[in-house]
Structures are given as C-alpha cells and as structure tokens.
Design a protein around this nucleic acid. Structure first.
Lengths: 304, 304
DNA sequence: AGTTGGTTATCGTAAAAACAGATAGCGCTC
DNA sequence: GAGCGCTATCTGTTTTTACGATAACCAACT
C-alpha cells in the first residue's frame, strides 16, 4: 500500500543517501526503513535505489519519485496552512521551551518564517534547563521543547523526539591566547587553563565534564555562568577559555574575534532535539511550526 | 496522523455527501468512516463537514481540502505512470476477466482511456461466467475480474471487491408488444409471456429466478442464450420478452427500438463489482487501470 | 586469506492502528 | 410519539507497524 508515511520516509532516505543514516535521523530501526522502501518498490513495481556496499544510489525511478514526493508534500503543507488561516477564530498561540543556547541563537531565526506563514500566530518562548523543558512538555505547559543531548533518563515512553541537527562543540579562546593559531589541543592541555563554566545544574556542563573526565581531565572553573551567551562574552573579554556550541560562536569565529579548536580524541558533538508529548496528537500550530522548520530540516517533514 | 488513506476516504465522503453512502460504496463499516474523518479533523484542527440530519455538508475547510486532495491524487497518479513508463522493460500485459454482459458493453469503453494513458500496454480480456471469473482471479490467471451481484458464497476472505456501479435490470419488450406504452408491470403478468432466458448456469439467471420466485412467478423459457447481447437481439427480433441490464439496452431504448419496464415491488438492481486477489498487492498495470477507471468511478481512487 | 567496519535484508515478537458489529443519540417525517 | 435515516461511540478482532537480533554482503585493511 502506498502511504504518505512511506513516501516521506523515502524522501529522507534519498536525502541521506543511506538507509542507516535515515533511520538514525528519524529514531527508527534500520529494519523498518528497509522494509518500507521494499514495500514502496513493490507498490510501484520499480526499484527505487540501487544497493551498493557503501550506501545506496537512487535509480531513475527513484529520481522521478523524489520530485513528485516533494511536490506532494509542498501541496499538503499548503493545504494545512490554507485551512488553518481561514479559521477566523481566536489568534492561536504556540508555546515553546528551549535550553539557554538554543533559545538565544537558533529559535529566533526559526520563528521568522513562521510569522510570515502565520501572521496571526503568537509565539511564546521560554528559556529553561533541559529537565524543565521535558517536564513542561509532558505537563502540557508548552507545545514543543528544544534541548541538546540524548534523552537517556528522560521519560522515554511519552516523549516524542527528533534530531533537528548535530551540534558541534569547540574550545574557544580569544585571539590573544597562545592557542589562537592552532586548530586542536590535547585534552590534558586544558587542565591548567582558566575555564569559564556553565553552572553545575546545567546538563551541558555535566556532559562536558563527563566527556573530558574519560580522558582524566578535570577543569578549573574561573567562572560559572548560566548561559552560553554569558560564557561567550566572558571569553571575548579575556576571562579565560571555554567550550561552546558552534551556533553560538559563528559570527565571532568568522570575524576572528574568537578562535575555535578541536580536542584531539574527544567527540564533541551531540544532537539538538525537538521534543513533544507523543501521547497527544499535534495541534495545528505545532504542525505549522514543524512545517516551517522542515524547510531547513527535512527530517521533520516525516512528522507531519 | 495525516495519511493518504484518510485523505482518499475524505474525498469519497465529500463526493457522496454522506458518511453512510461512502462507507457502503467502499465496503467499509460506517464507524470506520466516521472515525477517520474525525481523525482528519483533529489532525488539521478544523471541522471538515457540518453534520446535518440528512447527510453532511462540507465546511469551508472541507472545500479547501477537497481541492488539494484532488491535486495530490493527480500528482501521485502521474508519478506512478511516469515511473511505470520509464522502465523500458517488456511491454506489460493486463489480463482481465468479465461476465458476458460486462465484457461486451462496459469493459471496451473503459479500455480506451487506458490505451491513451499507457500506449505500450496490452490488455487481454476474457469472457467467462461469474464463478470462473472468481476462480481465475484467485488462481492468479487474471489480474482483475468484473462481475455482477454480491459475492456471497465466493471466497470472501481472499477476494478484494469494490462496487463499480449499480446495474438496474428492466423488462424489455419490442415496440410491437402490447406493453410497449407502459412503464411497469406486475410480477404475475410475466407468467404467460414467452421469455428469453440466459442459460441455466448463468448466475444472472439464477438471480432473476430467485427475485421473481419470491413473488410466486415462474418464467416460461422460449430460449436460453448465453449472453445478454444474444438475448437482446432475440427480443429485438420479436422472439419474446426478457429482463436485461441497463447498460445493454441504452442505445435501443433511446431510439425506441426496445421499450423498458419496471416490475412493481421487485428490486431489480445489483452491484457491478470489480474483484481481485487481495492476498497480493496490486501490480503497476492493475493500478494504472484502476486509476483510469477511477476517473469515472471515484470510489476506486481509494484503492490506489 | 582472515578480520574489521560499514552496509542492507530477514526473522520473530510486541505495540499500535484499522476494522466490524452492536448500540446509542439526534433530527427529521409521518 | 413512532419510525426512519443519519452520525457517534464502544468493544473485541484482525492487520499493520516497529523493534531488536541476526544474517548476509562488500570493501578495506591487516
């Protein structure tokens, strides 16, 4: 049977060029992706991907289908917006919660196209810590939450989640710092540095300490601040060094106001997740927001 | 969740103006239609139909959605055809079976748009009796079957079926017959008439005898012929009267060469069904044919 | 040649969705 | 107010979807 779900999944697979990566990005088992593509191929009577040893390559049929799926999804998105807009009811409201960095550096830019698509929509954003985001999402106090890191201990059964992007953390130093010309350091070199930390209750901090702790490194905190923005300005002002997510330091890195370094042998990425209460279906405003975000993050299209 | 299945169902409901009739036409329980429309309304955040005591009326949101669903279905149909046509494999073949009347009066006209849509397709049609149609469909010897009447004793579990249209049977007499000016007769008036019958193995005949038998009428067979066409020409030539399906006598009725009468108190309609083996998914050529037929019979669109 | 790391395919089982059938409720008409 | 035609809701069954483990495959590197 041809279903929207399978078509959306096909699109994600096409864009990732791999069943495996598509499954990961969707938090699905790889076997499910395999099965659904197989079903699609049976339904259409044509092979959609050629399987090679490293990944896959779309066939001519796959290319054709991809074009049509894009059009279909665009059409359906348009339909939803049109239906939402003709309801001259009370102005809808979307409540979202996000962790400190996301709420400052990423969410605002996502809201701009949303306002264009839904001029009468009011968005209410709150910044809170990871566990508070989860709590408020599951309490129904906010419609969507944004946070970083895996949701390991966090109410797996009720919490819907999807990876919006991968966030890469880097050591940041001011241009006057001795490391300014380098591209990476060893973990142990961090030991003696004056380090600008997040506050101890921050999940980002615990994650960072865990990652470095595996290499026997304990950081010496010069300051403990409660947002990446505050940390960034501390580093800019020469208070010390820190580790910050890529999205927080893009502008300064381009201008040379901050220098970024990797840490040898330490994986410094973690996923940025959108989370919601999967016990309840999406409201229209949630769908509108997801639809807008899906233009930049194709994986999200599968949710609609 | 927004699914293609529900959207197709929505379209059928819209076109029938009734949950109940849509359910009947799709051989679904009414509760299922109700539930799915409800789900759609929840997913879109808008009521799609206003419920009135006699049927339903689409809301503004329903009208908007209907337009989009049509576009989406057209797009997907186009995609399937495009994918099917770019495979430069052997010319595909579609085998269909139909009962005598259908194979002569209805199927050929359905095949014309199919040839336009799929020029390289070869259609193989065989005329056979109802039970043979079912047998060959379930044996996989033909892809689709067409027959009249309910499939009561006929392998319900494996036989997919959908009502293509309702066939209305009428008493037919030549213009020289005493009944020629009338519009209906009573069942008992048929008793003494010279009646042109189908052969005893015909399901249509057994159905007719059963329907009239409930009114205590037994027909006197002047001839037993093995197709509606043969029966028609017998009547045209003054051999007697008969009962024939509407599609077989359209032209002659318009020209006045045959006169049609109802039988008071006797329901003379039965469904024309398309049947297939539902244990196996549709092939591409099956889908192409169904798609063509769906332009005249919207209910079929749900199958794709 | 054997091993490792990457991929997709397939299997059995558990959770979720679709469905049928029965029933209730609602607004007409007679 | 009884009957008819319609939609809504409930319960149990069937079908679909998803997971997790495993197999099979290929390339690259010992």
């Amino acid at each position: 049977m041809l279903t929207l779900h399978k078509l959306k999944l096909f699109r994600i697979v096409y864009e990732h060029g791999s069943f495996n990566r598509a499954a990961q990005s969707l938090y699905l088992a790889q076997s499910v992706v395999s099965q659904h593509i197989h079903d699609l191929e049976a339904a259409l009577g044509a092979r959609l991907f050629e399987r090679t040893s490293r990944g896959i390559r779309p066939t001519a049929a796959g290319e054709v289908l991809y074009g049509y799926v894009g059009k279909v999804q665009a059409l359906l998105g348009e339909a939803e917006l049109a239906i939402g807009q003709l309801d001259t009811q009370a102005a809808p409201q979307l409540d979202v919660a996000a962790t400190p960095g996301v709420s400052v550096y990423l969410l605002p830019s996502w809201l701009i196209p949303l306002r264009q698509a839904r001029p009468n929509l009011t968005v209410n954003m709150q910044t809170m810590l990871t566990h508070e985001v989860v709590r408020d999402v599951l309490n129904g106090r906010v419609h969507l939450g944004f946070l970083e890191g895996d949701t390991d201990g966090l109410a797996q059964e009720a919490l819907g989640r999807v990876r919006v992007r991968e966030v890469c953390y880097r050591v940041v130093v001011p241009p006057t710092h001795p490391w300014a010309g380098r591209t990476s350091i060893s973990p142990s070199e961090l030991k003696g540095q004056a380090f600008i930390h997040r506050q101890p209750t921050s999940r980002a901090r615990r994650w960072l300490e865990g990652a470095l702790g595996q290499h026997g490194v304990t950081l010496r905190a010069t300051a403990e601040l409660d947002s990446p923005g505050a940390v960034k300005y501390a580093v800019l002002n020469g208070m010390g060094v820190s580790v910050l997510p890529d999205y927080a330091i893009e502008r300064e890195a381009e201008r040379g106001e901050l220098r970024c370094l990797a840490i040898d042998g330490v994986s410094m990425t973690r996923p940025l997740l959108m989370v919601w209460d999967k016990r309840q279906p999406f409201t229209l405003v949630q769908r509108a927001f997801i639809g807008v975000l899906a233009e930049q993050v194709p994986e999200l299209a599968l949710l609609l």
